[in-house]
Nucleic acid binder design. Sequence first.
DNA 1: TTTACTATGTATAATGA
DNA 2: TTCATTATACATAGTAA
Lengths: 113, 113
Amino acid sequence: MTRKKLKLAFITNDSARKATFNKWKKGLMKKVSELSILCSIDTCAIIYSPYESQPEVWPDTQGVHRVLAQFKRMPGMEQSKKMVNQESFIQKRIANASEQWGFAIMIQVQPNV
Amino acid sequence: MTRKKLKLAFITNDSARKATFNKWKKGLMKKVSELSILCSIDTCAIIYSPYESQPEVWPDTQGVHRVLAQFKRMPGMEQSKKMVNQESFIQKRIANASEQWGFAIMIQVQPNV
DNA sequence: TTTACTATGTATAATGA
DNA sequence: TTCATTATACATAGTAA
């Protein structure tokens, strides 16, 4: 055993990288859910992939609905959408399916946080 | 000192809650950035608020552009947008500014993860 | 492959300035 | 209030089944 200090670099071994990703994903999800409780914040997480018909969501579909609806209303999000539209030249460069996986966490924060 | 075991419940003390939020936000950001390196994943984070003209972004605006452009192209995201549209009745219920803060983390995952 | 274990690295609660 | 400290709760790298 004897765990080593984390070396912050790409994990070249495929299985080790996958194992690490799954552990870290689990840890991030847990932290997001706990932060939600500790600070009374609405949160959700989405893990999506072109190879899956349904994105993996947390805490549930209804929770995702609620946070995304709010997210969409944000002035900051409007700005982000505008940025995205301006990035069409980047979208055109993206062609290979290898870039079509994603993972999203969204947390809504009350002003009293 | 003598740190206690985390009690998973709303932190009623305002300053304690704010301190915890800031620590956890920092920790989440760090983990997201490290996961990005360990697994060669494109990531970004946005903290937005109607009271700030610019959302706080990580790693930088360009990085946010790249990830959001990709995010928008996702089949999962299309589905999410559809869900949001169906949630207009919820949007109508949301009226007070107290719900207009937000924080988003998005991580793009390569299929080889 | 996934799961379980556990020693150890890391994050952070509580404190003091 | 925010910053720095530090003891300790917690997450997880490496291993084995």
